[in-house]
Amino acid sequence: MELLEGELEQIQTEVGFILRKYEPGREQLLPILQEVQGKIGYLPKEAMKMVAEAINIPEVDVYSVGTFYNQFRLNPPGKNQIKVCMGTACHLTGGHIIMDSFERRLEIDEGETTGDREFSLERVACVGCCALAPVVLVNEEVEARVRPTRVDGILLGLGKAMPVTSKHQKEEGDTIE
């Protein structure tokens, strides 16, 4: 994922500030990563490198933990967050087909963010309304009984140009919080 202009400086400042609060030591890794993600919204590689150096463990160990827990994301959350439910009921009613449809349309894999940071796609495990399966959460709004055709509708409603990709750029100054 390409960093936005000024994002690297922001990451360095934020992470540097967080790291000052912790004693060095491997056992601090999880709380640090949680705080970094809480602040930056995801775990950029630059941040993971800084954490590794601060607590004196190999970079790959930080990456290992960051990729192990579902709690952590390695890509920035998109402006529109799409969460496809993969709970039992949604899985049985074709949740993975819906996921595939989103992956094809957005040209990213599950867990990734589009290059323009407009959309991020992730899987969730049950959102608690199984009667409406398969369910997709679009920016915390529930989309019920989603069909592949509805996927296009959802994306069009969010301003994605169809059918192929658009080069449409958003206004400048879009930083992630």
């Binding site: 463990i57 190999p58 790959v60 160990d61 990456y63 290992s64 990729t67 192990f68």
Partner: peptide, 25 residues
């Protein structure tokens, strides 16, 4: 890599079926 060579270049990343030995990133 970690205990003998003391490099720290490789590790086991991701989980479940996606688990694999890989480098940072």
């Amino acid at each position: 890599d970690h205990h003998k060579a003391k490099i720290g270049a490789i590790g086991l990343v991701r989980r479940g079926m996606s688990r694999k030995m890989a480098t940072f990133g």
